[in-house]
């Protein structure tokens, strides 16, 4: 005990250093967390005190078909992107690794990485423009090839496909570079040995590179899973009246109900449910990856 106090005295300056950080986290993370839970049990009134209404907001959300529609949309778009986006970066990383011309390799690396840097306002703005039926690049190419233009952002099925594929397009360069970094750290003697054993390129990739990328895949997947329920910018920027009901995701729904329509309590109830779901998903992913680490 005395030792602890002595240490604390020695490190007094360190504690002082931490004060702003602690205050920030308390005021802007933990307090809002508690406040959000509190709000979720309160009625929505524009003026004056808000009475407590128990589980009303949760019950309303639970029985709101729109809520379930956005849950469905979130899962379809989120899981869709997750699945569609899993292989491309690995393929790109392997392809880049096989490339011998350094300049071109650097160039491709740079280019595929770029979209990841840009905001969804930029990416959304570009693709809304590229996908318009008249004057948009994609449809102009389709027309030139003899097809008829497609309402990519007005046909709900197409729009969902676009919402699933755009994050893949935006993020695959970034993930590819993470994979590439792991590939370059693979011991070259492994390939040497394989070559001596007569393994061809494909066999080397399949039998050496891919298995060694598994830990990286886990990291990338975990990051993706954790982001699944948080999607906001992309949908908010790209939605329109026709497709809205088929692409609106949970966070957009929270923003619409809570901020646009000012039902703070209702929106908080939805947020709390999503938060609980996030925590469960996080716990599950962590457990699975730990288990695999030990098992593997």
């Amino acid at each position: 005990m005395r030792n602890t106090i002595r240490l604390m005295k020695i490190h007094a300056a360190l504690y002082v250093m931490l004060i702003p950080v602690i205050i920030y986290f308390l005021v802007f993370v933990y307090y809002p967390l508690v406040r959000g839970v509190q709000l979720s049990f309160q009625a929505d009134k524009l003026f004056g005190p808000k009475p407590y209404v128990g589980w009303d907001n949760y019950v309303t959300a639970w029985h709101d078909p729109e809520f379930w529609q956005v849950v469905r949309n979130t899962l379809i778009i989120g899981v869709g992107s997750l699945v569609a986006g899993f292989l491309p970066p690995i393929i790109i990383a392997v392809a880049l690794n096989e490339l011998l011309q350094i300049t071109f390799k650097k160039f491709v690396q740079t280019v595929v990485y770029l979209p990841h840097l840009f905001s969804w306002v930029v990416i959304g703005g570009i693709w809304i423009y590229l996908l318009t039926p008249s004057g948009g690049l994609v449809n102009e190419i389709i027309k030139r090839l003899g097809g008829t233009s497609v309402g990519f952002l007005t046909d709900p099925t197409w729009a969902r496909a676009v919402m699933i594929l755009l994050p893949v397009w935006k993020g695959m360069g970034f993930a590819a570079i993470i994979y590439l970094a792991s590939i370059t750290s693979i011991n070259p003697t492994l390939y040497e040995a394989a070559r001596i054993d007569g393994a061809n390129r494909f066999q080397q990739i399949y039998q050496i590179t891919i298995p060694l990328l598994v830990p990286t895949m886990k990291v990338v997947l975990i990051l993706d899973v954790l982001g699944l329920l948080r999607t906001f910018d992309q949908i908010y920027v790209m939605r329109n009246a026709v497709i809205q009901s088929k692409i609106d995701v949970l966070m957009v729904y929270v923003f619409d109900t809570g901020i646009t329509n000012f039902k703070l309590g209702f929106a908080s109830a939805v947020s709390v449910m999503v938060l609980v779901a996030t925590l469960i998903i996080t716990a599950i992913t962590t457990v699975i990856s730990r288990y695999e680490d030990q098992g593997g």
Binding site: F28, V29, Y31, P32, L39, L226, G258, I259, L264, L279
Partner: peptide, 16 residues
């Protein structure tokens, strides 16, 4: 704090 994505507390953050 890392378990609490900022999107999920946007409503109370606004209130704060």
């Amino acid at each position: 704090t890392m378990a609490v994505p900022s999107e999920l507390i946007m409503i109370p953050l606004y209130v704060v």
